[in-house]
Design a protein around this nucleic acid. Structure first.
Length: 822
RNA sequence: GCGGAUGUGGCGGAAUUGGCAGACGCACCAGACUUAGGAUCUGGCGGGUAACACCGUGGGGGUUCGAGUCCCUUCAUCCGCACCA
């Protein structure tokens, strides 16, 4: 038999599958559908091991489901807009479109050598007009429903490049390109109102039992719902009021000062014409020169300044000083807080630093009554004290009672706050989907009519070395007429965040060639939701949250009939080398293309799935790859060695000798194991090890003097069928070699025969006081008394029991006996 | 600091519901075949012992006939988030 020539075999079958359109699917109401999707890649130029792992996992699921009778949709596309393409244009003078399309071609070629069962007819790229036309359509729909709006927002601004920077372009508070210090600048930006969906995004996590608990927890924390109340504090000697939000209304009598965020709109007014004005302005100036990143990333010391003004606590009429401090954030709550240093650690630290009073209003069991004795804030449970008629209430009861009182007396009301903020989607970049908006002097902000989509990205543009968007200089793009009045108008030159493009692509795959609408209703109704979504955990928050938001919105406007896009989610671990993530800078990158050239795709796929369960990090090992390669070679020789036997005819029904019976037993036990490992647990590593066991047993059976052709055929075919989702090419080749005409891809997944799993005897472990002392063979189904008698015949057991009294027999049928003896 | 994980042979990992710790693979050792072996096949492989005994799942304690698995406590590593009122 010729040797295992993976290059020949893999090329041959890839071509065969493609020519026969094996993986092209269409809606078929007569069969259950299964939509398996891997997160589509950014076309950076080359496949890396993380991709290989992702697609290998997806392909096993897809092939397994197909063999189990499902109509499987398994598409692939490209998340093709984004900053790297623009950087390449600036640095190397290559147009982003050319760079991106070349990368797609290369990665597609690499991907095809992996032999994944993609329906390439559905390929899409978000940077193509036929796709981004509908990204723009999504924007228009959101706009029509009041969910897209403009407001001023702080951006990173490089004063030297005169351009906006993405967070990742800011390194150590400086511009990555020119190293100038980055400033904050307020610019008008487009937002999507995802906060309108905060509660549903939170509640509907309950609908997702097929998601990892850890991802749901991350999403819950990100949405960050907190309950409390909101009330106004009046400024002494003025009509102005400042709203505050608190989750601890029970501590309202412990307020000893109030704090505003530096950006709070009332700050400047408060400090006007007071002796403190100079100090306040100095502080504000200092804060303004700190970028967002600097303010957020370092362990900033709490710092603040007194405004000179006082606010009135509405519960007790007390006047408390108003401060400004860096630890209060403008974009959470109202940007102002009531400070209760005795019961909030941040307030406590601040009060100690600036000598502000600390008043205990919650009495825990060992809490000192005097604030001066506290060493840290007391945040636990207890009874209210120093709180007028609320004294004696517990924290829980006090919260409710204080809010009730506030509501009754018109002071404040129950309120819910979310950490989640609206989604800033505008980018001052070229390589993205243009925002379909026109600014008219007469009509103001005018959306581009649907029939005028797409707003095409002009191709003939020049890139500034500063990184500034070239769209600002293409007059043929921005000079336009108003769709409303026909007058002169200017087109929006901002483009959309690439997360917008990836928030609906799973729907587009259902009918990717529609040109009048984003997707055909019948197609999405048939295919959606995605049954199994697979990707890196780094997308656990943003991408998945945005995709869920879009799906809910499309459901609301009746374009989708599911409320959640992804029924089951698998988050795969990273591929590591020498304990850390593969990266160019560390020089520990292993190229998939090299591995596939050296060992073949079947080996690469097999190793990456065998080395670790998919949700855990995987340590790359060159020796391990060799091992996988050797295994496939063993399978190759094994099947070759059995070719003669397989030509004979032996029916399974005839009387079997012990070795043959054991081979048949193993075959069916392994079918059961592999099926359950793939279906219930995604434990591909143990599924593969089981397949190896079957192969080992078949190997040993080669020495049998009179091999049973029927049992051998069953075992060999099972081996190939079970292995085929992992390493499809070699299995296809061997499948044909043993005489089959049809592709192994069209075969049904094997079913195990319960009767073959029945053994006449089972081995039972005999323990004495929990320690294994012997093993006995027991007839299957023996009653406890029989087992007990048999144990007491074992010489080793009797020897151990000498001088002891048996107190108890614990029998786990078919497994174990534990004799308790003193 | 908060939140989430993870700790098992020389290594990757297995043990699915509290029931034989170390499946499967790598590395290593010995042997066979061989002019040769970085191919292939056979056997061995947690520590310990001549062989048993015994010890062993990060450490300490507990529950149980029985604990890698459950409870308490502690340590280490990794990841995520950064003052969320």
């Amino acid at each position: 038999m010729e040797k295992y020539d993976f290059k020949l075999i893999e090329a041959k079958w890839q071509q065969y599958w493609e020519e026969h359109g094996f993986y092209q699917v269409s809606e078929d109401p007569s069969r259950p559908k299964y939509y398996v999707l891997e997160m589509f890649p950014y076309p950076s130029g080359n496949l890396h091991m993380g991709h290989v792992r992702n697609y290998a996992i997806g392909d096993v699921v897809a092939r397994f489901k197909a063999m189990n009778g499902y109509n499987v949709l398994h598409p692939m596309g490209w998340d093709a807009f984004g900053l790297p393409a623009e950087n390449a244009a600036i640095q190397h003078g290559i147009h982003p479109a050319i760079w991106t399309l070349a990368n797609i071609e290369n990665m597609k070629r690499q991907l095809k050598t992996m032999g994944i069962s993609y329906d390439w007819d559905r390929e899409l790229a978000t940077c193509k007009p036929d796709y981004y036309k509908f990204t723009q359509w999504m924007f228009l729909k959101l706009y029509q429903h009041g969910l897209a709006y403009k407001k001023k927002s702080a951006v990173n601004w490089c004063p030297s490049c005169q351009t906006v920077l993405a967070n990742e372009q800011v390194v150590d508070n400086s511009c990555e390109r020119c190293e100038a210090v980055v400033e904050k600048k307020q610019l008008e930006q487009w937002f999507f109102k995802i906060t309108d969906y905060a509660q549903r995004l939170l509640d509907d996590l309950e609908l997702l039992p097929g998601w990892p608990e850890k991802v749901k927890t991350m999403q819950r924390n990100w949405i960050g719902r907190s309950e409390g109340c909101q009330f106004d504090m009046q400024i002494a000697g003025s009509d102005e009021r400042i709203s505050v939000f608190t989750t601890r209304p029970d501590t309202v009598f412990g307020v000893t000062y109030m704090v505003l965020a530096p950006e709070h709109p009332l700050v400047e007014k408060l400090a006007q014409n007071t002796p403190e004005a100079a100090a306040v302005n100095e502080f504000l100036d200092k804060m303004r020169h700190l970028s967002d990143i600097a303010r957020a990333s370092t362990e900033l010391e709490k710092e603040g300044v007194f405004t000179g003004a006082y606010a009135i606590n509405p519960m007790n009429g007390e006047e408390v000083p108003i401060w400004i401090a860096n630890y209060v954030l403008m974009d959470y709550g109202t940007g102002a807080i009531m400070a209760v240093p005795a019961h909030d650690q941040r307030d406590f630290e601040f009060a100690r630093k600036y000598g502000l009073p600390i008043r205990v209003v919650i009495q825990g069991e060992d809490t000192p009554l005097d604030g001066a004795d506290l060493t840290e804030a007391y945040e636990g449970d207890g009874k209210m004290v120093n709180s007028g008629l609320f004294d004696g209430l517990s924290v829980e009861a006090g919260k409710a009672a204080v809010i009730d009182y506030m509501e009754k007396n018109g002071i404040g009301s129950r309120a819910v706050n979310y950490r989640l903020r609206d989604w800033l989607i505008s980018r001052q970049r070229y390589w993205g989907a243009p925002i379909p908006i026109v600014y008219c002097q007469e009509c103001g902000i005018v959306p581009v009519p649907e029939e005028d989509l797409p707003v095409l990205l002009p191709e003939d543009v020049e890139f500034k070395p500063s990184g500034e968007s070239p769209l600002n200089y293409v007059s043929s793009f921005y000079e336009t007429t108003c769709p409303g009045c026909g007058g002169k108008a200017r087109r929006e030159t901002d483009t959309m965040d690439t997360f917008v493009c990836s928030s609906w692509y799973f729907g587009r795959f259902c009918s990717p060639h529609e040109d009048k609408q984003p997707f055909a209703r019948a197609a999405v109704d048939y295919w959606m939701p995605v049954d199994q979504y697979i990707g890196g955990v780094e997308h656990a928050i943003l991408h998945l949250m945005y995709a869920r938001f879009f799906t809910k919105f499309l459901y609301d406007i009746k374009w989708l009939s599911c409320q959640e896009p992804f029924t089951n989610l698998l988050t795969q671990g990273m591929v590591l080398k020498d304990g850390s993530k593969m990266s160019k800078s560390k020089g520990n990158v292993v190229s998939p293309e090299d591995i596939i050239n050296t060992y073949g795709a079947d080996t690469a796929r097999l190793f990456i799935l065998f080395a670790s369960p998919p949700d855990r990090d995987l340590e790359w090992s060159d020796a391990g790859v060799e091992g996988a390669y050797r295994f496939l070679n063993r399978v190759w020789r094994l099947v070759g060695d059995y070719r003669k036997v397989l030509q004979k005819q032996d029916s399974i029904g005839s009387e079997l000798d012990e070795a043959t019976r054991q081979l048949r037993f193993k075959t069916h036990a392994i079918i059961k194991k592999v099926t359950e490992d793939i279906e219930n647990r995604f434990n591909f590593n143990t599924a593969i090890s089981a397949i190896m066991e079957l192969s080992n047993q078949l190997g040993a059976y080669r020495d049998h003097p009179r091999p049973h052709a029927g049992v051998v055929r069953e075992a060999v075919e099972t081996l190939l069928l079970l292995l085929s989702p992992f390493s499809p090419h070699i299995c296809e080749e061997l499948w044909h070699m043993i005489g089959h005409e049809n592709s192994i891809c069209l075969m049904s997944w094997p079913k195990y025969d319960k009767d073959a799993l029945v053994q006449s005897e089972v081995e039972m472990v005999v323990q004495i006081n929990g320690k294994v002392r012997d093993r006995i063979m027991v007839a299957t189904g023996s009653d406890d008394e029989t087992v007990r008698q048999q144990c007491l015949q074992s010489p080793r057991v009797l020897q151990q029991l000498e001088g002891k009294t048996v107190q108890k027999f614990i029998i786990v049928p078919g497994k174990l006996v534990n004799i308790v003896a003193r």
